[in-house]
Amino acid sequence: MIEAAPNLLEVRGVSKTFTLSAGLFRRDTGVVRALDDISFSVPAGSTVGLVGESGCGKSTMGHVIMGGLKADAGEIVFTDPEQGPVNLVGAGKQTLRHVRLNMQMIFQDPNASLNPRMRLFDLIAEPLVINKVLSGKALEERVVQLLEQVGLSPRYMFRHPHALSGGQRQRVVIARALALNPQLVVADEPISALDVSIQAQTLNLLKDLQQERKLTYLFIAHDLGVVNHFTDTTVVMYLGRVMETGVTREVFRQPLNPYTEALIGSVPRIGGHKRGRRVVSTGEVPSAAKPPGGCHFHPRCPYAQDICRKEVPALREIRPGRQSRCHFAETLELHGMTSEPASAPVPH
C-alpha cells in the first residue's frame, strides 16, 4: 500500500532544535530537540496519522512542513502538481508561496484560528483574495459553494465567528483551508476541542471531502481511537523521535515498539468491563528539555535493558512496511488490540 502509491510528501531526517534562553542577557540555557531525525512519507490520497503525547513534537512537525518553522536539517520533499518534487527545507520565499497553494492547515481550536473581527465571508475568501485567485461575483459564488460543501448555510456568510457554535466554527476553518483547492491538508488535532457528538460529524465531513476532492491528510492527533478510525498509516512519536510506523491496523494490532504498546494499553475502553490491572508504563512523559539518554522511553519501559540506557536505537524496518525504533523489536512479544476481543454494543 505505501510502496505502491507515489508519495505526495516525504519527510527525510528532519531535525528542529529550539534554544531556550533566560536572564537579562538572554543566555542560552539549554536546547530542546523538538524533532530528532524524523522520517516518514505521505502517499497521495491517503491519510497519515501523527500520534503521540504532549511534547512529542507532532505539532512542531506540522508547522515545519507548512514553513512556519524552519527545519535545522533534513529534507521535506513535496511533489507539487505543477513544479514536480520540491524540497521545502531551505526553499525560497517564492517557492514556498507557490507550494502553499497546494498545502493548507487546519488548526485545533477554531476559536483561536479564526480572526474574531472578520466575517465568515472574509475569513473564507482571504486565501483566494491574497493569492488573487478570484474576485467579485466569482469569489462570492466560491465562498457560497465552500460553505455548502462543509454543511453550513450561506446565510451565515456575513456573520462573525462568535455567532456560531464550536462545531460550526471548525467547519469554517475547514472551508477556509479548502478554498485554494490544496492537495495536502495538515490537520492538527482538528476535533479535540469539540464535543463528542460534534467530533463524529467533523470526522465524517473530513472523510467526505477527502473522497470528493482526492485530498491527502496528515492527521495530527493524540486520540488513538480517532487515529485508528481515520488514518491509513500511523507514525508514533515520542519526545521528538519516531518510535514506530506502519499501516494503522497493523500497528494497533501488533505494535513493534513498547511505547506503542503502552499507549494502546492506556486507552480506556467501552466494553462493559470494569477496569482491570493492565501493563502500563510507569512515570510520566519527561520534559523535552531533559530527555533521558539512550532510548528516550527506557525509564518507563518494562522491557528496558542496559543497552537501552546507553544506545539510541535506530528506526529500522522490522517487517515490510513496518519500522520501529527499539533494540528488541524483533524479539519482544507485544500486545496490541487483538489481545482483548472487541465487544461492540448492539443497539436494540
Binding site: G167, V196, S197, A200, N204, N228, P347
Partner: peptide
C-alpha cells in the same frame, strides 16, 4: 445509542463513516 456509535473505537476495525448526532445541543 447515538453517542456510543459516534465515538471512534480503538477496538473497532471499520473505517466506515461514523454515525452522528446531527445538529448541535
Amino acid at each position: 445509542q447515538a453517542l456510543l456509535e459516534s465515538v471512534p473505537r480503538l477496538d473497532a476495525d471499520s473505517k466506515e463513516r461514523l454515525r452522528t448526532i446531527e445538529g448541535m445541543v
